[in-house]
């Protein structure tokens, strides 16, 4: 399947949103639920409950979505051509992973205009680990002509719990992929809507101001005292909710608790960007968030979606 049937402004090689739409269409056709971004600050698409929680337990689950990812430390006031404190990941999660996941993935590259007869596509070892989520898996960085375009992981553990069955996770770094497809050197130069002339909207017009503002906030003005407080509050509330949700063999309030875990994680990321967490403390904060994630994961298995017996 190629994108040539699309009108020019919808084509993934010309339009950032066209790229997103093409991936959504492709994975929708493969049977995925197309979710929308989670409405909270997260550092990666994996943190979306649609991956983090749904990858646990025995129930089949196939989903795809875009997730805005916040990495406060990566902000560069919009001046670095490749680094942003807010960017998009396209995330696919397939549980259990189908036997032909590599072929499906390669099909998705063709769908966005990367012909594997023309481009050098490679699977290069990369073991994935997310210490704050207590998650790890084995897989690859997927290279296209020497550029990493996706992360391909077979989840082995999530929230410290063995995955049974294993999910396959694909993460496409959308901005970088789009730069390659559109042949531009800087993310800000991306054509967002695929139009030309007066109708053209660039990534710069959409996001430059936000990058500048958030970089100021992340590095200079975020209220660290308040953030420390918020971290502690979120940690406490997460635990309280997990306690209150206990109901015999079942758990009735995992997702609100998990939201608090995400809030704690984001507060930590901001504090880290502000440079107020020392190397030794850093590890202990990561551990604290991981403990929350693990507790949420364990509670998830006691819910219906987590596969608990009715």
């Amino acid at each position: 399947m190629s994108s040539s049937h699309l009108p020019p402004h919808m084509r993934p090689e010309r339009s950032f949103q066209g790229l997103i739409l093409a991936l959504q269409t492709f994975w929708a056709e493969k049977g995925c639920v197309i979710l929308q971004p989670y409405d909270m600050e997260v550092g990666a698409g994996t943190s979306h409950p649609g991956t983090m929680l749904r990858s646990l337990g025995p129930r089949p689950w196939n989903a795809a979505y875009v997730q805005p990812s916040r990495r406060p430390k990566d902000g560069r006031y919009g001046e670095n051509p490749n680094r942003l404190q807010h960017y998009y990941q396209f995330q696919v999660i397939l549980k259990p992973n189908p036997a032909n996941l590599q072929e499906l993935y390669l099909g998705s590259l063709e769908a966005i205009g990367l012909d594997p007869k023309l481009h050098d596509i490679r699977f290069v070892e990369d073991d994935w680990e997310n210490p704050t989520l207590g998650a790890w898996g084995l897989g690859w960085e997927c290279w296209c002509d020497g550029m990493e375009v996706s992360q391909f992981t077979y989840f082995q553990q999530v929230a410290g719990i063995e995955c049974a069955p294993v999910s396959g996770e694909l993460t496409y770094g959308l901005e970088r992929l789009a730069c390659y497809l559109q042949n531009v050197e800087s993310i800000m130069e991306l054509n967002f809507n695929g139009r030309e002339g007066a109708e053209k909207v660039t990534y710069r017009e959409v996001f430059l101001q936000a990058e500048q503002e958030y970089s100021r906030y992340n590095f200079e003005h975020a209220d660290t005292a308040a953030l420390f407080r918020r971290f502690a509050e979120a940690e406490t509330e997460c635990r309280v909710l997990l306690g209150k949700g206990e109901s015999g063999e079942r758990h009735l309030m995992v997702q609100p608790a998990y939201d608090q875990c995400l809030k704690a994680g984001h507060a930590f990321n901001l504090l880290d960007a502000r440079g107020v967490i020392s190397v030794t403390e850093r590890q202990s904060y990561i551990l604290r968030v991981r403990e929350l994630a693990k507790a949420c994961g364990a509670a998830w298995l006691k819910t219906e979606a987590g596969g608990a017996a009715a």
Binding site: P96, G137, L138, Y154, E162, C163, A164, P165, G168
Partner: peptide, 23 residues
Amino acid sequence: PKSMRWGAASVSSSSLRWVRPLQ
């Protein structure tokens, strides 16, 4: 050095482990 489980068979913890899915 590191091995993994995969696919539908991985519901069981005794499923085959290999470095990446054995085809």
